Amino acid sequence: MSRAPSPFRTAVTLCTFPEAASGPFVFHGTLEVGFAKAVAHGFGAVELFLAGPDAVPVEEIVALSDQHQLAIAAVGSGAGMVKHGLSLTDPDAGQREKARTFLREMIHFAGKIGAPVILGSMQGKSGGAVSREQALDWLAEALHEAGATAAEYHVPFLYEPLNRYETNLFNRQAIAAAWLAEREITNVKLLADLFHMNIEEDDIAAALVTAGPWIGHIHWADSQRRAMGTGHTDPAPIIAALRQIGYAGHISAEIFPQPDADAAASQTLASLRPFATV
């Protein structure tokens, strides 16, 4: 396999902890194999999903990055929820503090390799004893701290609006962007995941244009969370929207490895190839 020409900063997801074995990540298993697969397919970066901030030494990540000449696009914090059951909006104060500590340590870890951290599932939700107003106050406090901590490493922090089946906090890009502005939360960008947007947005391209200045990362997935080009999403207007807003971040494949990891990786890059000279 060889590198395909692309004007985009492409990335592919690598997950190393077994609790997320059924998750939407292209390569599962060891980092050594994942890095080698990523570079063989022609990606320019990897997006890492690790068990926690102490799961892998920083030096190992740096060595693999140098060896394969791959950037680290981002580091996910999903293990905080999937593996450790932590949420920033947990009704228990002790659990919320554990969640904030986990996130803080992930930011320090990722910062040392020059990468932003993603907040997705750990944002939690409102309900029961936790009102929406209270949940958003706790989320705002955590994002203020996360943005400030990430700024120490000159990287942004990434907040991901999820679909309605995963959170009831923010599901749409423009509404999340307006709230970040209202709360004066700095150094926090939005992660625009096309799978979630397929569920929640009336028009994905228009949503990207509206939230343009806030968009900091893209998860490139088709409507059914498989590789782009296997579902019913039209990538052309999305690429046009990204060009319109001057997006210069990574386009990363956070997708199910179907029919297998190599096929998903190849199809991801193939879906971008038609736009290489447009």
Rank of each mutant, 00 (worst) to 15 (best):
residue 2 S to A: 09
residue 6 S to G: 10
residue 6 S to P: 14
residue 6 S to Q: 14
residue 7 P to K: 04
residue 8 F to V: 04
residue 8 F to H: 06
residue 9 R to M: 06
residue 10 T to R: 02
residue 14 L to Q: 08
residue 15 C to V: 10
residue 15 C to E: 06
residue 18 P to W: 05
residue 19 E to A: 13
residue 22 S to V: 06
residue 23 G to H: 12
residue 23 G to I: 00
residue 24 P to L: 10
residue 25 F to Y: 12
residue 25 F to L: 14
residue 30 T to N: 10
residue 31 L to D: 04
residue 31 L to R: 04
residue 34 G to S: 09
residue 37 K to P: 10
residue 40 A to V: 05
residue 41 H to Y: 12
residue 43 F to R: 10
residue 45 A to Y: 05
residue 47 E to R: 08
residue 50 L to F: 03
residue 52 G to A: 03
residue 57 P to T: 04
residue 57 P to N: 09
residue 57 P to K: 07
residue 60 E to T: 13
residue 61 I to A: 01
residue 65 S to Y: 03
residue 65 S to G: 04
residue 66 D to T: 11
residue 66 D to M: 13
residue 68 H to N: 09
residue 73 A to F: 00
residue 74 A to C: 12
residue 77 S to E: 02
residue 82 V to E: 02
residue 83 K to R: 15
residue 84 H to R: 11
residue 85 G to T: 00
residue 86 L to G: 03
residue 86 L to R: 02
residue 87 S to H: 09
residue 87 S to C: 04
residue 89 T to W: 08
residue 92 D to G: 05
residue 92 D to V: 05
residue 92 D to R: 09
residue 93 A to V: 06
residue 93 A to Q: 12
residue 98 K to A: 03
residue 102 F to K: 02
residue 103 L to I: 02
residue 104 R to I: 00
residue 109 F to A: 04
residue 110 A to R: 02
residue 114 G to E: 11
residue 123 Q to D: 14
residue 126 S to K: 11
residue 133 E to L: 13
residue 134 Q to E: 15
residue 135 A to D: 03
residue 138 W to S: 03
residue 141 E to P: 12
residue 141 E to D: 13
residue 142 A to S: 13
residue 146 A to E: 06
residue 147 G to V: 02
residue 149 T to Y: 14
residue 149 T to R: 15
residue 150 A to M: 03
residue 151 A to L: 03
residue 152 E to G: 11
residue 153 Y to F: 15
residue 154 H to T: 14
residue 157 F to D: 10
residue 158 L to R: 04
residue 159 Y to E: 09
residue 160 E to I: 00
residue 161 P to Y: 01
residue 163 N to M: 02
residue 165 Y to S: 07
residue 170 F to C: 09
residue 171 N to A: 05
residue 176 A to H: 09
residue 176 A to D: 08
residue 177 A to I: 00
residue 178 A to Q: 15
residue 181 A to F: 10
residue 185 I to S: 10
residue 187 N to T: 06
residue 189 K to C: 04
residue 190 L to N: 05
residue 190 L to G: 01
residue 190 L to S: 02
residue 190 L to V: 05
residue 194 L to D: 07
residue 194 L to A: 04
residue 194 L to S: 06
residue 196 H to D: 11
residue 197 M to P: 08
residue 200 E to R: 04
residue 200 E to S: 06
residue 203 D to C: 12
residue 204 I to S: 01
residue 204 I to Q: 03
residue 207 A to H: 09
residue 208 L to R: 06
residue 210 T to P: 11
residue 211 A to W: 12
residue 211 A to S: 14
residue 217 H to V: 00
residue 217 H to E: 02
residue 217 H to L: 11
residue 221 A to W: 04
residue 223 S to H: 00
residue 226 R to N: 15
residue 228 M to H: 08
residue 236 A to W: 10
residue 238 I to P: 12
residue 238 I to K: 13
residue 238 I to N: 13
residue 241 A to G: 01
residue 244 Q to W: 05
residue 245 I to A: 06
residue 246 G to L: 07
residue 246 G to C: 01
residue 247 Y to T: 02
residue 250 H to D: 14
residue 250 H to K: 04
residue 251 I to L: 15
residue 255 I to S: 07
residue 257 P to E: 08
residue 258 Q to Y: 14
residue 260 D to V: 01
residue 261 A to T: 00
residue 266 S to N: 14
residue 270 A to C: 11
residue 271 S to F: 10
residue 272 L to Y: 01
residue 278 V to A: 13
